[in-house]
Design a protein around this nucleic acid. Sequence first.
RNA 1: CGGGGUGUAGCGCAGCCUGGCAGCGCACCGCGUUUGGGACGCGGGGGUCGGCGGUUCAAAUCCGCCCACCCCGACCA
Length: 585
Amino acid sequence: MKMSHQFGLTLRQAPSDAEVASHKLLVRAGFIRQLGAGIYSLMPLGKRSIDKIEDMMREEINAIGGQEIFMPVVHPADIWQETGRWYSIGDEMSRFQDKNGHDMVLAMTHEEVVTDLARREVQSYKQLPMLVYHIQTKWRDDPRPRAGLLRVREFTMKDSYSLDKDDAGLDQQYRAHYQAYFNIFRRAGIPIIAVKSDVGMMGGSMAHEYMYLTPAGEDTLVLCDECGYSANRQIARFQKPEPNKEKVADLEKVATPNTSTIGSLAELLGVPKSKTAKAVFMMAKFAEGEKQTEKFVFAVVRGDMDVNETKVINAIKAQELRPANEKEIAASGAVAGYASPIGLKDVLVVVDDLIPASANLVAGANESGFHLKNVNYGRDFEADIVADIVAAEEGFACPECGSPLRTSRGVEVGNIFKLGTRYSADMGATFLDENGKEQPIVMGSYGIGSGRLLACIAEDNNDVHGLMWPITTSPYHVHLLSLRGGEDKANVVYEELLAAGLEVLYDDRDESPGVKFNDADLIGIPMRVTVSERSLKEGGAELKLRKAQDKEIVALNELLVRIQTLKAELEAEIAATAASEIFRG
RNA sequence: CGGGGUGUAGCGCAGCCUGGCAGCGCACCGCGUUUGGGACGCGGGGGUCGGCGGUUCAAAUCCGCCCACCCCGACCA
């Protein structure tokens, strides 16, 4: 491609609303342009990189038996009603009516459509296993898009769906994806770790997320350097400390004026925070078919720990959780700052499993200015549900080996879910087994966001001058610059490289050398070839790697072979990182 | 949804407080000089000052409402 007619210019300054490196550089280098909040166009350079990423996805998914299909982006509401997600998903799903007044949805994922296809096409166990996938645009009206392509509302995703006759088959396809995803990320040139994760709105029994570690990420991961345990903080477990073994003492009411925080309470009474119980009030939404109900939830954890809302949602099997407002708190009989589960009515009490084992805690008296000492579970109050609802923190003990845990921020670039029969059962996607008995198809779903992956590659591969693409995802292999006195020879080189099948971005513009060099560094194509009066005098063309400092002069008649060799070396470097991943289920 | 911020040329910004011809740098067009790390000179083109309404002789500037975008939080894959 000749840059003189390239659609999309480089910018000397990034738009002021770009903050993270990948966003600034992708805009400045002309890969993407923003249309609205979380809505981006891909320019020619960006489109070429995305195509390469998606082609690698195709190769890896084809290699594990995938068959590419293409499913619609607009769905009739009825299939979403069949699975109940029409009712359970909130504003994040955009809905509209067609001209006949029929409810429609913009696809945010494709479980419903693929399950509908499966119930039409799959009749017999003899057809299974099968794996279908597509690369399609999705729309999720995220409450807060941010950071360029790292978090958007409209995005393209490769998602595959596995169809099996039983759990063993699902497990096999799940593990195949587990490895295939690592292959894709390796080939794309970025380090990724897999962590155990919440199943969220997908439902199902097991899930992993693929995380690129970066402070710009917004998921918090809990990692153990000792044994390799890794999980999203939303579900991360840890070993609870040994509870105290005190003898149960008598309940005692104490005046604690102006002591509505755990810190001030512990100080006033001279006890450690771990001897107190903390209460958090939330409203939980439950969906039963088409009906929605809300319930006041009273969660209790030890004072030195924090509630993990995802764990609460999973413990009480709610759809959604939000903080309760003052009115709702008052209606429940609880007193903010002095709340306790003792004597409350019509509320759902959820207690962390460390609480029943802890004796003589300090808790609120449900009376402003008073707390109770020596509160004991079982004697003074009981819970509707006892479960692990505490958020894992840096330094807590690893659930597997007891070593201190570490936390890190990450961006989720992919995920895999064991769906089981969550969708096939609701939608009647069944087959006949060996005994002629009707069984629901056992399913899995597996996604990777291609734009988010592009952003992570950019985030991981840049320096002060600009982007530095791995050869596998670079929009072009070679960036050819012609400078004064080298124009004619550069034209010949361009034609020769193209004829050899190389992808070349040719800077044939009438610009000063500085502009061309700086644009080349900004765009970040791995190999740069300069043809000028000077280089010709020195014996040919100048060849430089974007990531290296050294330059070499290569005779024009050897240039093609030299570039092909270098390209093969760059590809081999990435291939050399391939490995089998240990599955951590 | 809560808190904070910003909307003036393609990009970055000044002007607004204290109302009076809409500016600067980069980018863009023409001519000339220059040519290996974001050149220089001369001459040009480009604006509903986010939108609507109000105050005023006069509004980018003051007032009201709305919209968009960004950041933090809530939430989410």
